[in-house]
């Protein structure tokens, strides 16, 4: 199994000089294709910061962060954008575009790539929404959907580009138990079908069972 995320000796801190606040200390972790890794830990332990560095959203300077064979430490914006385009993101809030329908929101992922026609994009997006159980909600705007439905749209948006990696930050935080479990169940099922690796940051212990591996982060250090 090939290694999609390979992080070695990553150090990261906010601020500079005397105000330096270390967030991640000597973090080493690797994630393989098709693996589902849950990262847990108390607030302020650096989970989210770790996720933004791996996702190419935040610049780190020390250590080694290889994602899809691209070194992200001291990388250019171009490299990070390229990596981001191959990653599916699921946010704590659904972060859907409220002026667009579910179908259009999912299509936004596909509009970044060349080669497909509008019809192909819409068909692909509709199929994805079908897969997350929203086949009858294609033309609903986020305002007209429930919290769980919105999060499922955002799962569809993250997966429709067939990314090799999905990064999710507290995807169930704003959902009740049932819709939260429904959302991660769908996420897991679709990821397993396509061999997508998932790094999921959460402190929702109700969803631990979906993980292949659980990693605990505390004060910027990975506990064994």
């Amino acid at each position: 199994m090939s290694m999609l995320i390979d992080v070695r000796n990553l150090d990261f801190s906010f601020g500079s000089g005397e105000l330096t606040l270390p967030v991640l200390k000597n973090v080493t972790i690797s994630i393989h294709q098709g693996e589902i890794v849950l990262m847990t830990g108390p607030s302020g332990s650096g989970k989210t910061t770790f996720l933004t560095i791996v996702g190419g959203l935040r610049q780190a300077f020390n250590g080694s962060v290889k994602v899809l064979d691209q070194q992200l430490i001291n990388s250019t914006e171009q490299v990070k954008v390229k990596v981001r385009q191959q990653i599916g993101f699921i946010f704590q809030q659904h972060n859907l575009l409220k002026s667009l329908t579910a179908l259009q929101n999912v299509s936004m992922t596909l509009e970044m790539y060349n080669g497909s026609s509008e019809r192909e994009r819409l068909n692909q997006a509709a199929a994805m929404l079908e897969a997350v159980g929203l086949g009858d909600r294609l033309n609903y705007k986020p305002d007209q959907l429930s919290g769980g439905q919105r999060q499922r749209v955002s799962i569809a948006r993250a997966l429709v580009g067939q990314p090799k990696i999905v990064l999710a930050d507290e995807p169930t935080a704003s959902l009740d138990k049932q819709s939260g479990q429904e959302a991660v169940r769908i996420l897991k099922q679709l990821a397993k079908e396509s061999g997508t690796a998932i790094l999921l940051v959460t402190h929702d212990y109700r969803i631990l069972e979906i993980a292949d591996r659980v990693v605990e982060l505390e004060d910027g250090v990975i506990k064994d």
């Binding site: 959203l57 981001r84 972060n95 992922t109």
Partner: peptide, 11 residues
């Protein structure tokens, strides 16, 4: 926030 989301997606 919507723009930031799109940027995270690679826009």
């Amino acid at each position: 926030y919507e723009f930031a989301t799109l940027k995270a997606m690679g826009y």
